[in-house]
Write a protein that binds this DNA or RNA. Structure first.
Length: 700
DNA sequence: GAGCACTGC
């Protein structure tokens, strides 16, 4: 550890921190910033007056970095050095250095807005610009400027973002700390390939034949392309002349791969064997693969974006930013000098790539964040004027206000209600928080807790859709409950209740093809939610999962009513002549129930007249995912409320965006703030992909 | 009759 580059800068860093409330540190990979900054501050006495808190965007990072620091200081983890993540607080009264996820710090600041227990907050990896980091940046600015606070704030970022962060904090100093990366030679293509799967294949084979040993990391956009490339690579490598080059192992790597498949990339390859790791951007930051010397970068990433006008998410393939391209290239230089093959021309990189990734706050629904900020009760707080590093669009903020109004979290003047206050205490999206509260009133809380917990883990419940899996699924699994014709929420409830009746048996999950890890997560979430609800209700509630299941018919009715109130912002009406739906809480969109839904047409071939939905997402078409049938009588009052919405009043009477914010908005290149802003060439790319898909189907 | 990148409380 002694030769980490950052240690030579200790005096300079401490002096700068001494004289300034906020300091930006640009530290490249391998600089040691995540482990050393906290220890430096500790050595220089900053842990005497309070805790040094270091935030991380990811749980694993918080845990592993804390573990290393404890080791370096020779203390037991959980004492002087600890960490706090959801479900796991390993800190004690003795803790002086605390690693935590930024989500946990936000939660802490709900009960302690001044963050009094901290002397220093280090926002690590701020260049990743997670939604939570962006909220924290705004809160930190407020803390250091509004109060005569002695809090010190350090922000670590990437080269391309440092100036901007410094400007945000009234031109605070920027310190550069060199990294410990080996040089990476960048090689560009002359033009964009028509198919980057083919182009990656060719490049990978070239490397395999011509270049000395070293693993190859290939960045693709998604599971489909990864599987395609993996099988093509296997074919081609097999057909190479025996003995003409070394052996090869080809490994896919993406999030929906079961954990035991993911960890395969951590075991070193056999001697004289090259590994090809075909990955999504999970290998960009979340997972570090050792032994990589060559990187192939398609220049694309799959990104989720939200359109506040339609309330619709879409999953699009978009061009990466310069920061991402550099991050990918850096993966080749961790163990020795490497090479990065960019499958795009250098002029494209320089002239067309955005400097930094569009921050999540400009690509997400802000309902949860706005409720959080409202609940902080900052006296000087006007949500439309909140000082964001990159402000979200007015449409997006207004959309959040409208939705919060529909679910009773704020009143018609935009003030937080007592319902809203309680909702903010629950670690759930607002619609589910509202559902729990309503369920509590109606005597179906235990059922609602199960549904909310199941929805929190939904994507990790069902197994991946790899070919082997599909075959297995047809034979073995036992039937899951069907939601009794009432939809997916009821099915999720039934699944959880079955599991409960089977004493949370792991074998039961396997028999029903449910991911064990996902189901255990659900159980944890449910427990956490139950505890919070007990505390809120200040009395004992019946939160047992399966209290009196003979009365389930009644409970379903009550639960659906509670869901209808909770999802008043996500309501849809069936079309008269077919089974398509029209959304009611936004500019109306024609949408369909996702084919994976358990909702089925009745004897007359019709779906329910009204449904609430958990998610609206456009893939090949706009789909409602996870729907629940609701009754017209419940819907009417909501529609009246929709009609009454007055955005001017909701946004605090002015109806105008604050002058400061307006200036900032005009500073930004349009591309960055346009939520629909998928550049044309991507649109045509996606269009082309769809046509290829149709053509392929035609052949079948 | 489709198939979703990655995080987090």
């Amino acid at each position: 550890m002694a030769n980490l580059p950052i240690l030579q800068f200790e005096d300079q860093i401490i002096e700068t921190v001494e004289r300034n409330p906020v300091v930006v540190i640009i530290g490249e990979t391998g600089s040691g910033k995540s482990t050393q900054l906290s220890q430096m501050l500790h050595r220089r006495g900053y842990t005497k007056s309070g805790i040094v808190g270091v935030t991380q965007p990811r749980r694993v990072a918080a845990v592993s970095v804390a573990r290393r620091v404890a080791q370096e200081l020779g203390v037991q983890l959980g004492y002087e050095v600890g960490y706090a993540i959801r479900f796991e607080d390993r800190t004690s009264e003795r803790t002086r250095i605390k690693y935590l996820t930024d989500g946990v710090l936000l939660r802490e600041s709900l009960s302690d807005p001044e963050l009094n227990q901290y002397s220093v907050i280090i926002l690590d990896e701020a260049h990743e610009r997670s939604l939570n980091t962006d909220i924290l940046l705004g809160l930190m600015k407020r803390l250091v400027t509004l109060h005569a606070s002695s809090l010190k704030v350090l922000i670590t970022s990437a080269t391309l973002d440092g100036e901007k962060v410094s400007k945000f904090f009234s031109n605070c100093p920027i310190l550069n700390v060199p990294g410990k990366l080996y040089p990476v030679e960048i090689l560009y293509s002359n033009e964009r390939p028509t198919s980057y799967v083919e182009s990656s294949l060719k490049t990978a084979l070239d490397i395999h034949i011509r270049e000395p040993e070293g693993d190859v990391l290939i960045f693709m956009t998604g599971q489909d392309d990864i599987e395609k490339l993996v099988s093509k690579l296997e074919d081609r490598v097999r057909s190479l002349d025996e003995g003409s080059c070394m052996d090869a192992i080809i490994l896919p790597l993406h999030g929906s791969l079961p954990p035991e498949m993911q960890v395969r990339v951590f075991s070193p390859p056999p001697h004289n064997c090259r590994r090809f790791i075909v990955s999504t951007n999970i290998a960009e930051t979340s997972l570090t693969v050792d032994g990589v010397v060559y990187v192939i970068d398609s220049g694309y990433v799959k990104q989720r974006q939200y359109n506040p006008t339609t309330g619709m998410y879409s999953l699009d393939v978009v061009q990466i930013s310069k920061v991402q391209a550099n991050q990918r290239a850096g993966r080749a230089g961790r163990t020795r000098p490497g090479k990065c093959y960019r499958l795009y021309p250098s002029i494209l990189y320089h002239d067309d790539f955005l400097d930094v990734t569009v921050p999540e706050i400009q690509r997400s629904s802000l309902t949860g964040s706005v409720l959080y900020l409202k609940s902080l009760d900052l006296s000087d707080m006007d949500i439309l004027k909140f000082d964001f590093l990159d402000p979200p669009s007015t449409e997006s903020l207004e959309d959040a206000l409208k939705q919060l109004y529909l679910i009773d979290a704020i009143d018609e003047n935009g003030s937080i209600t007592s319902i809203g206050r309680t909702m903010a205490e629950l670690p759930l999206e607002p619609s589910l928080s509202r559902t729990l509260m309503e369920a509590n009133e109606r005597g179906c809380l235990s059922q609602a807790l199960s549904v909310a917990a199941m929805l929190s883990a939904e994507t990790t419940l069902l197994p991946g859709r790899s070919k082997g899996n599909e075959k297995k699924r047809k034979h073995t699994p036992l039937d899951l409950p069907d939601g009794s014709g009432l939809g997916d929420h009821i099915q999720l409830l039934q699944i959880y209740e079955h599991w409960d009746r089977n004493n949370y048996d792991i074998g039961w999950c396997k028999d029903h093809d449910l991911q064990v890890r996902g189901m255990l997560f659900v159980k944890d979430v449910r427990k956490q939610l139950s505890q919070i609800m007990q505390k809120i209700a200040k009395g004992s509630l019946d939160v047992r999962a399966n209290g009196r299941w003979k009365e389930s018919e009644m409970a379903y009715q009550k639960l659906r009513k509670a869901l209808c109130i909770g999802y008043a912002n996500q309501l849809a009406e069936r079309m008269i002549h077919h089974n398509g739906y029209r959304t009611l809480s936004f500019k109306p969109q024609l949408v369909q129930v996702h084919p994976s839904s358990v909702l089925r047409p009745d004897d007359e071939g019709k779906l329910p007249d009204y449904v609430v939905y958990h998610e609206l997402i456009a893939t090949s078409r706009p789909y409602l995912r996870n729907v629940c049938a609701v009754e017209i009588d419940w819907v009417k009052p909501i529609l009246n409320k929709v009609k009454k919405i007055n955005i001017n009043k909701l946004s605090g009477g002015t109806g105008h965006i604050g002058e400061e914010t307006k200036e900032k908005l005009s500073d930004l290149p349009k591309k960055e703030i346009n939520v629909d802003g998928v550049p044309d060439d991507h649109e045509s790319r996606i269009q082309a992909a769809r046509e290829r898909f149709r053509a392929r189907k035609g052949k079948k």
